[in-house]
Simulated scan of single mutants.
Amino acid sequence: MNKFNSIIAIALLAITFTSCKKDNEEPIVVAPPSDGSTLTLNGLIAAEAGSAAGNSVFVDFSTDKQTSVARASWDLGFYGGSDFRVILNNTTAAGAKVITTTNASLATVGEADTLGLTLAVSQASPANTDFAYFDAISGNLSNTVIPTVSATAADNKIIILNRGTGGSISAKSWIKLKVTRNTSGGYTLQYGKIKETTNFTTVDVPKDGNFNFKFVSLTNGAIVSAEPENSNWDITWTYSVYQTTFNGVIVPYNFSDLVFLNSLNGVTAGVVATSTVSYADFKEANISAVTFKTNRDAIGSSWRSTSPATGVKTDSFYVIKDGAGNYYKLKFISMGAGDSGTRGKPVIEYKLIKKGA
């Protein structure tokens, strides 16, 4: 009986201790999403022209936070999701080509393989065929220049990369590279300058599901921070390869002032004409009439005009649904001479209209 009573006493003591521990634990506080704000985006690094602003700027509406990242600070992005994909730096207009020659290696690929290649956008005479040099502007990861990284190392090809000079970025050495999967579940990158035959750099890049991509600078082989965690941004404002119509044909073209969505984290956007409902009057009840698009360039360049003077368009605004299900209405206030703004430092305003569940 004494043994039984001892067991009961110990059990009661354990329950009491657990209860006390729970009572003393700090509660997890989840900050509510921001009601909205007005932000001046910091696209300028120094005294560069606003049309060639050196930064990409990431914005998180729910925390009123902006993060500026130098466009030229990275060269390749390695996908953190289930697929094995590598992206080029569209914000420097980097272009690449896959070398399909049998048994090609980093040692055997050289300057001769670059003859006739530009791997760049021609602003004067762009051609539709040049799209082959660049990753899909929609952000579709099934349409990257570098193919899916195969689990069979020998199946992965050598890539020639022009690191890009878009938006007054200084020219850098062309690179040859190869990406394989490693035993840790991430990527292994090997690369060297186009003339190099023996001195190659190797970088292991881990997958991290908290980020859309992990980024590498080929200047020093370092893994660098080039965008916030995937749940901590909604849109990015930047210079980038985009598209336009030239002689009746859609061609790649370098654009300033582009706005892209964090589509990989489920951010979507819809446009609202002010002739239908004003920004001030748009409320939760109006959301059902909005058609949301999932593509990364759902906003793109549609928010601004460069003729007759550079400035924001006032005939529309946008509704953004973030990855947490919060809905914000977004309008652009100023960005250039046509609206008394500063090129490279656009001003935006956004308001919460429906909180996520």
Rank of each mutant, 00 (worst) to 15 (best):
G54T: 05
L88P: 01
A46C: 15
G300S: 09
A96R: 03
T144N: 04
L76H: 05
N286L: 08
F78N: 01
Y350F: 09
T108N: 10
T118S: 15
G95Y: 03
G139M: 07
T18K: 12
V203S: 04
S170Q: 13
G270P: 07
S125I: 13
L261E: 00
L177I: 07
V29S: 08
K65L: 12
S37H: 14
N326V: 07
S316P: 11
N140M: 14
N162C: 09
T306D: 14
D130K: 02
G336P: 01
N295I: 13
K214Y: 04
Y242M: 10
D83Y: 13
T129Q: 14
L161R: 05
T201M: 10
T102G: 14
T306P: 03
I348D: 06
I175A: 06
V30Y: 15
Y242G: 11
S19Q: 13
V109P: 06
F134S: 07
F215G: 00
L261F: 08
Q66S: 04
G50Y: 02
N247E: 15
T101F: 08
S173K: 13
L41T: 03
K176S: 02
D64L: 08
I28Y: 13
D281Q: 07
L258A: 12
T129P: 06
T100P: 08
I45Q: 10
I160W: 01
I235K: 04
L352E: 02
T245H: 05
N143Q: 14
W237A: 03
N89L: 02
A104P: 04
F246K: 00
P252E: 10
K195L: 14
S240L: 06
A14I: 12
D281K: 06
A289G: 08
K3C: 07
K193A: 14
T342K: 09
S307P: 02
I28T: 15
Y318M: 07
I10G: 10
A309H: 09
K157Q: 10
E25D: 13
M335T: 11
A14W: 04
S62H: 03
S316C: 14
D155P: 11
E349K: 11
G192T: 03
W237R: 03
V121F: 07
N199T: 12
Y242R: 05
S263D: 14
T18L: 15
G341F: 02
V271N: 09
T144L: 10
T108M: 12
S231P: 04
K313F: 03
I7W: 06
